[in-house]
Structures are given as C-alpha cells and as structure tokens.
C-alpha cells in the first residue's frame, strides 16, 4: 500500500504553550483516518500543519513522498483541504468559485469545466450552481467547501469537521461520499461525533492535550468501548442477593425503580444466567442490554491512563 501522508514527530508551540506534542502517524491509500478529541486538543492545529497553513515547530511531513516544508508547492498539489470554516467567497457563484479553485490547484484549463461539473454532481450542487455562495444555506455552503477540497482529485483529502451544520439526510450523503472517496484516496477527518467515526473511518486517532493517546483501527476502538456492565430492567424488584450469587457477577448496583447495573468480569458474560434466573423467579424480564461505553468514557479512561503513565 502506498504511504500518502507521513508525519514524523510533529510539534507545535504557540509561544510557550504546546498545542501539539510529538505526534507521528502515517496514512495509506484507501484509509480514512478519524481524528477525535475534545476542543482545544490540537486537531485543527495538526490539520493546519499537514496542509501547510502553519509551520510545525519541529518535525517532518511527507505528502505522497514529497517534503511539505522543503518543496511546499509540489507537495500541496496532492492536497485537498476543508478547514473548519469553509473558505468561500460569498460574492461568487458556486460555478465561478469552483472554477477559480480548479485554476488555483493547477487543473488544466480545458479540463476545468468537466472537473467542476463532476464535483457538483458528486456533492449535489447541481441545483445551486448559478447562485451566489453568500445566499446559500449552511448545508450547501458546507458541500461547496467539500467540493472545493476534492475538485482536483488530490491523493490526500483533509476535512476538518465536514458534517457540521448539515441535516441528518445530508450527513448520510456526505458520509457515503467520504467512504466512496476513501477507496481511492487517503482521507483524514476530524470530528466530535463517535458514530461518524464508526460509519466512515477505517482508523481512529484520539488526541488529548496535543498528544496522541490512541491510534487504532475501528475494530480496536470497539474493543475499547466494550465495557463489563449489563443493564437489567424487570417488572417487579428482583432479589439482589440471588443475582450477586451468579457465577461471573462481581457486583450488582441498583438504580432508580427496577433498573439495575450488573458488573461482571472481562472474560465471562453472565447475560444468559441472569436471563434464566429472572425468568425462573418470575420477576418479569423487560430489558437486558450490555452498556456500551460512550466516546467520553473511552476518552476519559484513555486520558487517565496516559496521565497516570506520565506520573
């Protein structure tokens, strides 16, 4: 597989404050890498460095094998970038704007109308192509921003929160588009939304306080999200002692009403035994679901781990 992006020991300081601390990773063709992290974690700074908008304080970036700092013009040919605020000229029409972007990215003059038309179809901009960008809704503006990033079919596409401001239907379309693009290109996208990562990405990175705390495939992330808790709801209050006595159950935590959490060991899941016991005792089983950890939980766990490590 071709390596499209190689970031080696990237660091970035704003004055004495460290925004990105020694991040290294690679992106191959056919991968969609999701950057996750809370606000101010360094996601946008990392992306800005990858796109040459910001010079790293230390480290090296290779885009398709070309050093971004030594030969920026050549490296940027392979880049498409959508910043967190789409860079749009409000007093141009969608057509004019995209044609200008194509020219800026060195698309051959004769190929421009074709390229613009293709990307408009892909991003669903056909109906608004002669409208002024300033008059478009947020969703269409966002799509124009995405169109601008993929117009010259760059090898590496970097999207900073691409689905912000879109309605659920559009979000689905854009995610499908990202998956489709991900087959032939390498994509890096940042987001707060976990489902977005699960749906569109092949790899995940979690950044916290400028440091990389997790670099995993999607399967790896799901392992992290798997927790050792079952949520049980019954019709009449069950006998907690009987439940605690089941093999594999570590503790039982009653919640409001007839809801309770059953914590169990990593290796044995007592779901079957619980169901049998509840049914046999006639407590009336209404719900039995594994509690999935949210991104926040995974996140907190990971950041605790790293903080504990550094101490």
């Amino acid at each position: 597989m071709t390596v499209l992006v190689e970031a080696n020991h990237l660091s970035r300081y704003y004055g004495s404050q460290c925004a990105v601390d020694d991040i290294s990773f690679t992106l191959h063709r056919g991968e969609v890498l999701g950057l996750l992290g809370p606000n101010g974690a360094g996601k946008t700074t990392t992306m800005q460095m990858l796109c040459g908008n910001l010079a790293p304080s230390a480290g090296q970036i290779l885009i398709n094998g070309v050093d971004l700092l030594d030969r920026p013009k050549e490296a940027k040919r392979h880049l498409g970038y959508l910043p967190d605020t789409p860079p749009l000229y409000r007093d141009l029409t969608v057509n004019e704007f995209l044609a200008y972007c194509a020219e800026l990215h060195g698309v051959d003059k004769k190929a421009i109308p074709g390229a613009v038309k293709r990307v408009q179809e892909r991003c669903g901009l056909d109906e608004v192509r002669d409208k002024l960008i300033g008059n478009l809704s947020k969703g269409f503006q966002q799509r124009t921003g995405i169109a601008q990033a993929i117009l010259h079919s760059p090898k590496v596409i970097i999207l900073d929160e691409p689905t912000v401001g879109l309605d659920p239907l559009q979000i689905r379309e854009i995610r499908a588009l990202i998956r489709e693009l991900g087959r032939e290109h390498g994509i890096i996208l940042s987001t707060h939304i976990l489902t977005e990562v699960e749906e569109s990405c092949t790899h995940v990175q979690i950044i916290h306080q400028g440091r990389l705390v997790l670099h995993e495939t999607i399967a790896g992330l799901q392992r992290h999200m798997h927790s050792c808790t079952l949520e049980v709801i019954t019709r009449i209050p069950p006998d907690l002692k009987a439940l605690s006595a089941l093999p594999g159950v570590l503790s039982v935590e009653p919640l409001a009403g007839t809801r309770l959490f059953v914590h169990h060991g990593v290796d044995d899941n007592p779901a079957k035994q619980i169901a049998e016991l509840v049914v046999a005792s006639g407590w009336g089983l209404e719900e039995l679901v594994p509690v999935k950890k949210s991104l926040e939980d995974v996140f907190i766990q990971l950041t605790w781990e790293t903080e504990a490590d550094s101490e």
């Binding site: 796109c51 880049l79 860079p87 749009l88 972007c101």
Partner: peptide, 14 residues
C-alpha cells in the same frame, strides 16, 4: 476575517 486565506495557503501557490 472570512477564513478564506486557507484556500490560498493550502493551494500549490507560494
């Protein structure tokens, strides 16, 4: 101010 500078900065333009 309009954040359009990123367009020029990430394009292959010096």
């Amino acid at each position: 101010r309009n954040k359009t500078m990123a367009l020029l900065l990430s394009a292959p333009v010096s």
